[in-house]
Design a protein around this nucleic acid. Structure first.
Lengths: 205, 205
DNA sequence: TAGATTGTTAATCGATTAACAATC
DNA sequence: TAGATTGTTAATCGATTAACAATC
């Protein structure tokens, strides 16, 4: 079932959801694959095809009810619930991630922050108390945390990932500028803004 | 020429470059498409095919000289030069972006920070003086800045993008959680970590 | 030389798009 | 009804992979 749906389709659903939330905030109640596609720079056929993997959410002639489609997508993506997220690394980058309001606003609650530096442990970033790296396995398995963000130097990232996975983490958002090797049952996504910039400079004469 | 190479190929070059820089830092002098592929989770055939768009960088039997291939990729991507980058938005997110060391370390120098809030203008984030939004066109066109990062609320992002483009910006890294509509000759990349998390929660039972 | 690895071609695979019957 | 838009099928397009001659 889930596994039969191409990951590239899954990757677009959050984009659709974000657009629907924006449309709702602007006061719209109904939309169409054409309107969504125009906003997103995606063909209407692709949007209809993507959605059709999960059911028929629209009506011929009228399009999609925004509130309903948004709700359906939230269920498909499992973002109806709040998720607890662990953050590893409390340096410049980790601190910035911890302070970013966008996670909690959209259902991802950073519940624990870890760092290896003894002088940081016990201190706080905002409302987060910093835990020692040696507590990762205990805390993450006890709290059954499935999602983690890595914001440590590249050299430490793989080893942190290994510990997280052993503790039960199944989804990792990696801010360290390095590829992680993980088992098939673990999902990894990467954030490295410099990669995006380098991709664009190719086109700048 | 450049336009005949698929953008998906271009998107992988910075990943190769990053891996090569890591290999070099680890003291390696030579690598192969197999070794690179194993590190990156990409097939060796794909790496060879991607590189072959730009020339023959390797030798049969021995592979690729890391220093040479790295240099070639840097030239292809136009990252031999330092790039000046404008940053719009000096709120929580913009401040974090301004403080991130990774940009300058890798050749992207934030040269100007803009914000619309009168109480922020004239103040500083780290070493950056905050300029008023009304100076965008003057400064960016005078300095011939081609790259900008947007870190303003979603509602303001499109209008900021329009101003930047009018001033001469041709590549935008957008941290605002909204799709931007821009002319064909402008490149946009997006960073929204929540999208990555939502893509992974789909697979979490 | 023998083994290894490239660069490239052809085959396969998968994703996007076009088109349209169904129907609101 | 007439116009609009969905969901889906078939056609097209493009990307990945397999395979191997060339050659270091």
């Amino acid at each position: 079932m889930a596994s039969s749906i191409p990951d590239i389709v899954i990757s677009r659903l959050p984009i659709y959801l974000r657009a629907l939330e924006r449309l709702a905030a602007e006061g719209h109640e109904v939309t169409s694959s054409h309107e969504l596609g125009k906003r997103l720079g995606i063909s209407s056929a692709q949007i209809r095809k993507d959605l059709s993997h999960f059911g028929g959410f629209g009506k011929q002639g009228t399009g999609y009810k925004i509130a309903y489609l948004r709700e359906q997508l939230r269920q498909v993506l499992n973002v109806e619930q709040e998720w607890e997220v662990a953050l590893v690394g409390a340096g410049d980058l980790g601190s910035a991630v911890a302070r970013y309001r966008g996670f909690a606003d959209r259902g991802f609650h950073i519940s624990h922050v870890f760092d290896s530096a003894p002088d940081k442990v016990g201190k706080s970033i905002g409302s987060f108390k910093i835990h020692p790296m040696s507590d990762i396995k205990k805390i993450i398995s006890e709290r059954n945390i499935r999602i983690a963000m890595i914001a440590v130097p590249a050299e430490a990232a793989q080893s942190v990932a290994n510990d997280l996975i052993e503790a039960g983490v199944r989804a990792i958002l990696n801010y360290a500028p390095i590829n992680l090797n993980v088992p098939d049952y673990v999902h990894v996504q990467y954030i490295d803004p410099v990669l995006h910039l380098q991709r664009m400079t190719f086109y700048l004469v």
